[in-house]
């Protein structure tokens, strides 16, 4: 039992580090590890993973907030989209064809992986001009980049398209049980013109809220097994605190380089899930 605890704990640490650096929930590591590695049911694994999303978000956010990497105003604006989307997703889950959705969302992710790959060499992006909503709500921000050794000031644009994408990303999370951060980071980075590190930290901040309502439901159903979730969540908490510190010192281009293969992998996995014959 001790060995199992330690292994699950170690998986948690790894997932927390990766999740904090990339702005993801870490489910991409935890769910396969628990189901394939320990033979646990999908329900137990997904329930544990949902609590882990909160752990990644909470653990990493402390450091990100202090360094102003998290844009709280953008986060609250976009959380309206994710939380309403997640609600819709959960409500209409029984009515829609999940296979079509898997393919659609998979293609969307593949496109954003391609887009990220195409623009990987562009270190200076064109000047972002804030749109009307962004100026009115003062969404622009600035943070001190420890890797660059200087303050980065930025503006936010395409505020409404960003909100709409967040709505669908929330719905995907509610319908398909994926997409805690994988849709959010590209939406902020590529659509709204935010710097990659601010996108990752803000995504990280937001995913905890969307996961909270799901986690409460799993708790009420008894799907959260304390002996599984306990060690993995503790690991994720510590891993996220460590990962946040690492991320702040990493150059954004390197973080993007880690993000792209995960994006591509998730895209392929989702398209495969959609087209395979059950």
């Amino acid at each position: 039992m001790v060995i199992t605890f330690i292994t699950i704990f170690a998986i948690g640490i790894a997932a927390g580090v990766v999740g904090a650096i990339l702005g993801l929930g870490g489910g991409i590591i935890i769910v396969p590890a628990l189901t394939l590695g320990f033979g646990m049911s999908m329900r137990t694994a997904v329930a544990a993973s949902t609590v882990c999303i909160i752990a990644t978000s909470t653990g990493a956010a402390v450091a990100f907030l202090r360094d102003r990497l998290t844009n709280t105003r953008v986060a609250i604006w976009l959380e309206m989209g994710t939380s309403l989307g997640a609600l819709t997703g959960a409500l209409v889950a029984a009515l829609v064809n999940q296979r079509v959705l898997f393919v659609l969302f998979g293609l969307l992710l593949a496109y954003s992986a391609y887009n990220m790959f195409r623009t990987r060499k562009e270190h200076t992006r064109p000047e972002v001009v804030p749109d009307a909503i962004s100026s009115k709500l003062r969404l622009g921000g600035s943070y001190y980049d420890k890797a660059l050794g200087r303050r980065v000031e930025y503006q936010v644009t395409r505020t409404l398209p960003g909100l709409i994408i967040m709505y669908f990303s929330g719905a995907a999370a509610g319908l398909l049980g994926i997409g805690a951060g994988i849709f959010k980071v590209p939406a902020m980075d590529q659509v709204m013109g935010m710097p990659f590190k601010a996108s990752s930290a803000t995504s990280n901040f937001m995913i905890g809220v969307t996961a909270a309502s799901g986690a409460v439901v799993y708790f009420a159903r008894g799907d959260v097994k304390p002996l599984v979730a306990g060690p993995v969540v503790l690991g994720v908490l510590l891993g996220a605190i460590l990962g946040a510190r690492l991320m702040m010192r990493m150059p954004a281009s390197k973080i993007r380089l880690f993000f792209m293969p995960i994006l591509a992998y998730t895209a392929i996995e989702m398209i495969y899930k959609g087209v395979k014959w059950w």
Partner: peptide, 19 residues
């Protein structure tokens, strides 16, 4: 932003209720 936060809180509460 107070209104936005309220919308988020209501959506989370409704998610728990319906879930």
């Amino acid at each position: 932003f107070a209104l936005f936060s309220l919308v988020v809180l209501c959506a989370v509460a409704a998610g728990i209720y319906f879930g």
